[in-house]
């Protein structure tokens, strides 16, 4: 029990003292996850809207596949991206393995299905309400997709957040493709795993506290944005 209190104390003094190693790790984590979520949103939202609005052959199986991909195990994604990016793999020439770019690629693969699947459901529900009115006004499917993405933007924020939660919390994929190299690819989750196995509990705990705090901050901010939007727009 004493160990835990000692670790907690040390963790807080590291956070308050803005330990430079800690700051670097937190910074890289944010950079990788935010970039991955940004790219996943750019791919996932239009994909979700298209799956919600367009009727084509194989739509239902595709929706099932996208839904299933939400549960992709990070280590499997890590392994696949590793095989693609390793020297002998098809994209080996780019020399991306064990760089932050490789970690971003792996996280994009993990997050995109989440954004696409959740936004598909949300947009489909909105379309049920809007369809007749928008068709009556003479909208095209493409125009309807843009309208729904814009009108649902505050609700869609939740799907992006779910993606961010996944990206910032996973360790399996970034560990395999990033390699947890100090000052290069070490992020919060990989260093927590490493420090725990080394026995450096204060640093691990400090990182854990920051990770949870960041998650609460981001979700809190999004909740407030939605709440304000609901009052203002009746969204």
């Amino acid at each position: 029990m004493n160990d835990i209190w000692a670790a907690l104390g040390a963790a807080f003094s590291m956070i308050i003292g803005l330990d430079s190693d800690l700051a670097e790790i937190v910074g890289l984590s944010m950079q990788v996850s935010l970039m991955a979520v940004g790219i996943a949103t750019l791919i996932g939202l239009p994909t979700g809207a298209a799956l919600a609005l367009y009727r084509f052959k194989g739509r239902k199986p595709l929706i099932i596949v996208v839904n299933a991909l939400m549960g992709l195990p990070p280590v499997v994604v890590g392994l696949l991206v590793y095989l693609m990016l390793s020297r002998s793999g098809p994209f080996g020439v780019f020399g991306l393995l064990f760089t932050p770019s490789a970690m971003i690629i792996a996280q994009v693969i993990l997050v995109t299905p989440i954004v696409a699947a959740l936004s598909r459901q949300l947009i489909e529900n909105m379309w049920e309400e809007y369809e007749e009115q928008l068709m009556s006004l003479g909208v095209t499917k493409h125009g309807a997709a843009l309208t729904l993405l814009w009108d649902g933007r505050f609700s869609l924020l939740t799907t992006v957040l779910a993606g961010f939660g996944r990206a910032s919390a996973e360790v399996g994929a970034v560990m395999i493709v990033g390699g947890n190299i100090d000052h290069v690819t070490r992020v919060m989750t990989t260093s927590i795993a490493l420090e725990v196995s080394k026995g450096d509990l204060p640093l691990a705990l400090g990182l854990g506290i920051i990770l949870v705090a960041l998650s609460i901050t981001v979700n809190g901010a999004a909740y407030i944005i939605r709440d304000v939007a609901r009052q203002r727009q009746g969204a």
């Binding site: 309400e129 809007y130 007749e132 009115q133 009556s136 309208t147 009108d151 649902g152 727009q233 009746g234 969204a235």
Partner: peptide
């Protein structure tokens, strides 16, 4: 329509 459908704006 019987029930008005308004965009969120």
């Amino acid at each position: 329509f019987q029930r008005p459908v308004m965009l969120r704006r």
